[in-house]
Amino acid sequence: MNEMPNFEQAKTMTESKISANKVQVYYGDTHAIKDVDIEIQPRSVTAFIGPSGCGKSTFLRTLNRMNDTIDICRVEGSIKIDGENIYDPKVDPVQLRAKVGMVFQKPNPFPKSIYDNIAYGPRIHGLSRSKAELDEIVASSLQKAGLWEEVKNRLDEPGTGMSGGQQQRLCIARAIAVSPEVILMDEPCSALDPIATAKVEELIDELRENFTIVIVTHSMQQAARVSQRTAFFHLGVLVEEGLTEDIFTNPKDKRTQDYITGRFG
């Protein structure tokens, strides 16, 4: 295993974490994403908003090549993470996804124990050399996800037996356990009640200290609460991107304004 080259780290600090350039996504004959250019800042939360079917989730999934699992999906243009094109033929999506984790709309814990849910990622990626190390990873991930106190005495119970909010935080902990650099969240709170949502939002806010977070959300309030930057998608086009404050208070584009003021969506 090599030492991490220093200049890489330096680049991470100064440049944007992810930069997409002229990204096109096709589903068969449908042109789902058109000409998207975006820079995503490290260690911050970027929210993708827009009406349903606008392509925000599709674009999110291109960021860790989850779209590869769909046969008819085709991506053009370049998406660079730390300056490396993730659609380069040399890139193994498996390795990419270890670096860019993902949390989904519906909590999807595996039908295994809580412990095994968290340990799954570290195990497949060979992140621990001993049981003790694995225990350490599991405990620290649960702690970071704010779930430790709730589950520390029932780690061998199935993850599917928890409440929806706990399940979603478990999924976040599961993603953290692989120690990714970017975490993608696809409407992580849409299946949760307001109290659980508040907890997850709090968690997202804490996580931005260590991770670059991209969140797709349906709720503009949520985008306003958790994100530093916001991107508005409409009909597969990135309409506007900027500081969250600016987008909500002073949108430049008519469509953004209409959406934010509730004319459509």
């Binding site: 225990d135 599991v138 405990a139 702690q143 005495n153 029932r154 780690l155």
Partner: peptide, 8 residues
């Protein structure tokens, strides 16, 4: 599984 994990 280990229910008596110590917190880090």
């Amino acid at each position: 599984t280990d229910t008596t994990l110590t917190p880090p």
